[in-house]
Amino acid sequence: MEFLKSFIQGVKSQLAVHLFRARVGHGLFWVSVGFLMLVAGVVVSVNLKNQWNYKTLKPRGQVGLNFKNSIEMIEAGSLVLGHNAGVSAVCSAVASAGSGLLVQSGFPVFTKNVVFSVLLGFLLPLWCLTFAVEGLGAEREGKTLFWLFSKPVPRSSIYIGKFLAVLPWVLIWSLGGFFVLAVCAGDCGLFAFKLFWQPIALASVTYASVFFFMGACFPRASLIALAYAFVVETLLGSMPGSLKQLSVAFYARCIMFQKSAELGVVLEQGGGYGDFSETMAICFMMGIALLFLVAGIFFFGKIELRGQR
């Protein structure tokens, strides 16, 4: 009972001192801002060219007509074949369906190219580590852990309190960044944001837990976290086969895949994202977050302040 009281006190005091006091302006922060601006710029330019659709889509590895040209050809065919009412009607119907698909194709194109590839594969881990690694990593690197360790509260409460204090920053930054990209893409982007903000938020919390653990327990955690983000999330996460299941992004994609499938949109066939139900993917992500949180509490509780002088 006394422990619980002290634990709650420790978490509350950490939140009171550190909530909304995250350090911005450090190197990684500006790298994150830079990448957000770069990707937003590309998304805006694609939007201005009205290319968030299947207009320029071609069969893989083939030359010739793209999707839009094909529809135009079919439409023209229906006019040319006007004397044959049956064939003309079929051509007309196919052309109309194709045009409708073209109008609605913005969402899967944006999701596949921006959300699945760039956001989950690279930007989101980078944004999350920007604040999560700094949580206790900055105290470790700045050799100020002593000021936290000298307080009469359990170490676990310091760890949890600090984690909860950085979490709003991680969520604001990752969801905010996603929203900026969605706005830049227009209607299809905003639709994707409405549909996918929850898996992105859940992935952010999971990343936060992983990177917070690294910051608390390893020296030069930023480098380790960057290496993890690049090797596991970017490289392994985009590999064919089951290796991608090691990445957090995989489970976020599974949730998105299921949500899209409910709307009748199949995002990436053959990616293995349909193998996990939405509930399973959520459980996996929460499990990873919890595992790293528990591991962090354990290792953080054993840290001795050697060589702090």
Binding site: S13, A16, V17, W147, P152, V153
Partner: peptide
């Protein structure tokens, strides 16, 4: 002040 807060 913050150290006092952390100390409860």
């Amino acid at each position: 002040a913050r150290m006092a807060c952390l100390a409860g």
